[in-house]
Computed example of a mutant assay.
Amino acid sequence: MAEKTQRTPGTPGAFSRWMQQKANARICRKIRRGKGGFMGMDVLILNTVGRRSGQRRETPVAWFADGEDARLIVASGGGSRHPDWHANLMARPGSATIELPGGEAVPVTPHRLDGADREQAWQRITAAQPRLAKYQDKSDRRYPVIRLIPR
């Protein structure tokens, strides 16, 4: 009988990852058809390149307006580590693009916010979506806030 490999605590299992992939693909199709909302949040497609695989990845992510053209995203995700898209984005920032509902891919430059910039952005984000503050309170890590600026 094949031996089961132990997964790291706080990381999703194979079935959970499969379900998330199916749900993400469905949301991406909706965004490309011009429908960009999910659970009361505006959603975009974040396109990255895998830091190890080099393969193109697409992830639906909630976004928040930041000035005229910039967008803020939060690396919340479940579990005790940052989501994979965050690691890919930070490892290969020059390959990042976003797709807004019904739009073409736009190259962006990601900036991880720290200090007062992060706190101000976090206050605006949690005012718009209080559930994120509740998720943050239950987490053992501080959620990164990323500003995406069109290139």
Rank of each mutant, 00 (worst) to 15 (best):
Ser139Asp: 11
Tyr143Glu: 03
Pro101Cys: 15
Arg26Asn: 07
Ile27Thr: 05
Gln129Asp: 03
Pro101Trp: 11
Arg142Ile: 13
Ala25Gln: 14
Gly103Trp: 02
Asn88Phe: 02
Arg52Gln: 06
Pro130Arg: 10
Asp84Thr: 05
Pro101Phe: 13
Gly94Ile: 13
Val43Gly: 00
Glu3Pro: 06
Ala127His: 15
Ile73Gln: 00
Val108His: 00
Pro130Cys: 13
Ala91Val: 12
Ala128Trp: 04
Trp85Ile: 00
Leu100Glu: 05
Ala23Gln: 10
Gly36Met: 02
Gln55His: 07
Arg112Lys: 13
Pro93Cys: 05
Arg151Val: 04
Lys22Tyr: 14
Ile27Gly: 00
Ile125Asp: 00
Gln120Pro: 01
Ala127Gly: 15
Pro60Val: 03
Gly103Asn: 07
Arg131Ile: 03
Arg118Gly: 05
Gly102Trp: 14
Pro130Leu: 12
Leu100Phe: 11
Trp18Met: 09
Leu44Thr: 04
Ala128Gly: 10
Asn88Asp: 12
Pro144Glu: 11
Leu132Gly: 04
Trp85Gly: 00
Phe15Lys: 15
Glu99Ser: 11
Ala87Met: 01
Ile125Cys: 00
Ala14Asp: 13
Tyr143Met: 11
Pro150Gln: 13
Asp42Tyr: 10
Gln136Tyr: 14
Ile27Val: 15
Arg7Phe: 10
Asn88His: 09
Arg112Trp: 10
Pro130Asn: 11
Lys4Ala: 11
Arg112Gly: 07
Asp84Phe: 05
Met1Tyr: 06
Thr97Asp: 02
Asp117Met: 01
Arg141Ala: 12
Gly54Leu: 04
Gly34Pro: 08
Leu46Trp: 01
Ser53Met: 15
Leu89Pro: 01
Arg51Asn: 08
Arg112Tyr: 09
Pro144Tyr: 08
Ile98Thr: 01
Thr8Met: 08
Gln20Lys: 15
Leu148Arg: 01
Pro101Glu: 14
His111Tyr: 10
Phe64Ala: 01
Trp122Lys: 06
Pro144Val: 10
Pro150Val: 08
Cys28Leu: 13
Arg71Pro: 03
Pro9Tyr: 10
Arg33Trp: 08
Met41His: 12
Gly103Ala: 12
Gln21Met: 10
Met1Phe: 07
Trp63Thr: 03
Pro9His: 12
Thr59Arg: 01
Arg147Trp: 03
Gly37Arg: 14
Phe64Ile: 06
Leu44His: 02
Arg56Phe: 06
Thr11Pro: 04
Pro107Phe: 05
Pro144His: 11
Ala14Tyr: 11
Gly79Phe: 06
Gly36Cys: 09
Ile27Gln: 01
Ala65Asn: 08
Pro83His: 02
Gly78Pro: 13
Ala70Asn: 08
His86Ile: 04
Lys4Asn: 10
Pro9Ser: 13
Ala70Gln: 05
Asn47Gly: 06
Gln129His: 04
Leu72Arg: 00
Val43Gln: 01
Arg92Ser: 12
Glu104Cys: 06
Val145Gly: 00
Met90His: 09
Arg124Val: 08
Asp140Pro: 08
Gly13Thr: 05
Arg56Ala: 09
Val106Gln: 02
Trp18Cys: 06
Gln55Trp: 06
Ile45Pro: 00
Arg151Met: 04
Arg7Cys: 09
Arg71Thr: 05
Gly94Phe: 12
Leu100Tyr: 07
Ala128His: 08
